[in-house]
């Protein structure tokens, strides 16, 4: 029978073996197997915005009669609807539809920002990108259009945003 003394060479060898096995498991799975997040020759288009759409209706100037009916502290001369327009989006890549959707305004009264985040893996190379958006429910067609020839390197990220400070559709 093998002695279970901690100084028995077999016991020590067994301990070394299993401590080593533990180390190998930790070492291996902490970096392997490799994970391929994006295949070669693929690029990424990210569509993301956080944007306040236009009010769904026209603002109108209150008449003196309408103002008189309001409490004195509520007599704003202009009245605008609270609800905001949803943002309609259509993206074509090389004349092929890539995405079409609507980002509704947030909030119970639909007066918050419309937000969207989408990612599209596309082949790297030169593409014709067409981005159309509508932020005004009173306009039937897309009121913001941008078409651009883009060259995407492998693994490159192209961001499509909607920002007032950049004049609408913004491609980076």
């Amino acid at each position: 029978m093998v002695s279970k003394s901690p100084y028995n060479p077999l016991v020590l060898a067994g301990q070394a073996l299993f401590y080593g096995l533990f180390a190998v498991i930790i070492a291996y799975f902490s970096t392997a197997p490799k994970y391929t997040h994006l295949e070669p020759e693929i690029s990424l288009i990210k569509l993301s915005f956080s944007y306040h759409g236009e009010p769904v209706g026209e603002c109108h100037k209150r008449t003196p009669e309408e103002l008189a009916k309001l409490a004195p502290n509520m007599r704003a001369p202009i009245s605008c609807p609270r609800e905001r327009s949803p943002i309609k989006v259509k993206i074509d890549l090389d004349s092929q539809p890539l995405f079409e959707g609507v980002a509704p305004p947030a909030g119970l009264s639909k007066d918050g920002t419309s937000t969207l985040y989408k990612r599209f893996e596309v082949p790297s190379g030169e593409h014709m990108l067409s981005v159309k958006m509508n932020d005004n429910a009173r306009i039937k067609d897309y009121n913001m259009v941008r078409e651009e020839k883009v060259t995407l390197k492998p693994a490159q990220i192209l961001v499509i945003d909607l920002r007032r400070d950049h004049g609408g559709i913004f491609i980076e």
Binding site: K34, Y35, T36, P40, P154, A155, Q156
Partner: peptide, 14 residues
């Protein structure tokens, strides 16, 4: 680099 997607990674699977 937020302009590039990390492609192949030595991921910590734990």
């Amino acid at each position: 680099d937020l302009l590039l997607v990390p492609t192949v990674l030595d991921i910590d699977w734990f």
